[in-house]
């Protein structure tokens, strides 16, 4: 700074004064900055301490309802990602820390009376216990407190529950967002799929029109063999179908495969009229927080009896 001032100095006294003034001002500014910055830091930190508590709490609240929300079956495979992902690690770490306490207790040392039995169990036993629980119980357990929530979010527990409630298939898959999110998404799709058959039973065209995605590429292949493409044509076909009596389908062997925003469901649909039963494939897409049907394919099931004549190509 002073070098610059000296250089300027050569021209005139006026400029010297100006330069001096500027230098002084610069120094002042620098001093200000130096003195303020740490102060600022401390001040900010203090603010964070007093306010930040609320912030973290707010975000953990989001997590709290995540279990619940994803359980509710609204089917946000992608939404439930972030909260469920960190849990498995978190649980293991927490539980390991607690393990020594357990050992001491087993030796008859009476302590930790405020912590409950469930919170002190070693993780392998907790996981074992959770495998005896159904879906509502796991969700309710997760609502008792935060450590139970971590335990109840255990990936293996949800995998076991998935296989119990849905299918033993898909044993080797690794869901991106963990088994809990996959369970929730599957449940959501299964519910929508069941809703499809409720709509058929009740012959509700408005409900059917809300179920389908309004797009030109949706396709519907009825059990009769007729096929329709595009939202309008598909809706017309349902309108025609609903002119007849409502049909009550019993669906069995429902198998669902879910990706973030796409799912397909295969099933057998039984009905006590002369046609059928049917092999059915339904495809759904996830848009704006909701699953929409984009494809329905129903075909008459081949029934054994002439099994020896079975030929793949007719």
């Amino acid at each position: 700074m002073e070098n610059i001032a000296l250089l300027l100095n050569g021209s005139s006294y006026v400029s010297l004064y100006i330069a001096a003034a500027i230098t002084a001002f610069c120094c002042l500014c620098a001093l200000w900055a130096v003195r303020l910055s740490p102060l600022n830091g401390i001040w900010r930190r203090k603010l964070k301490e007093s306010n930040g508590g609320c912030f973290t709490e707010g975000s953990s609240k989001k997590k709290a309802c995540c279990c619940s929300c994803s359980c509710c079956g609204s089917g946000e495979a992608s939404n439930s990602t972030s909260p469920s992902a960190p849990y498995p690690n978190g649980t293991a770490g927490d539980m390991l820390e607690r393990a020594p306490v357990v050992a001491e207790r087993a030796e008859g040392v009476e302590r930790q009376s405020e912590a409950s039995m469930m919170e002190q169990l070693v993780p392998e036993i907790t996981t074992h216990a959770l495998s005896y629980l159904d879906y509502p119980s796991l969700c309710r357990l997760s609502m008792t407190n935060s450590s139970m929530r971590r335990a109840a979010n255990d990936d293996n527990a949800w995998k076991a529950l998935y296989h119990k409630d849905f299918t033993m298939e898909q044993d080797s898959i690794t869901p991106h967002n963990g088994w809990k999110a996959y369970y929730a998404a599957t449940r959501a799709v299964v519910n929508v799929n069941a809703e499809f058959y409720n709509i058929i039973r009740e012959r509700s065209l408005p409900a059917m029109s809300r179920l389908w995605l309004n797009a030109d590429y949706v396709k519907c292949i009825h059990g009769s063999g007729e096929s329709f493409t595009g939202y309008d044509a598909v809706m017309e076909s349902w309108q025609l179908a609903f002119n007849w009596a409502g049909v009550v389908f019993q669906i069995r062997d429902v198998r669902t495969r879910v990706f973030t925003d796409m799912a397909w469901v295969t099933m057998k649909a039984y009905v006590d009229i002369e046609t059928g039963p049917f092999n059915v494939t339904n495809v759904y897409e996830f848009h704006n927080g909701q699953w929409y049907m984009v494809h329905h394919h129903s075909s008459v099931m081949f029934i054994g009896g002439e099994a020896e004549n079975q030929n793949l190509f007719g």
Binding site: A64, M118, A129, Y132, L133, D134, S137, M143, T144, N145
Partner: peptide, 26 residues
């Protein structure tokens, strides 16, 4: 473990807390 699970199954969160002496930290 089945006995412990039976103390959770079909209960409300409050009942589970009571059964296991779990303190809510929510």
């Amino acid at each position: 473990v089945e006995k412990a699970a039976s103390m959770i199954r079909g209960r409300t969160p409050d009942q589970i807390r009571e059964n296991f002496n779990i303190n809510s930290d929510f």
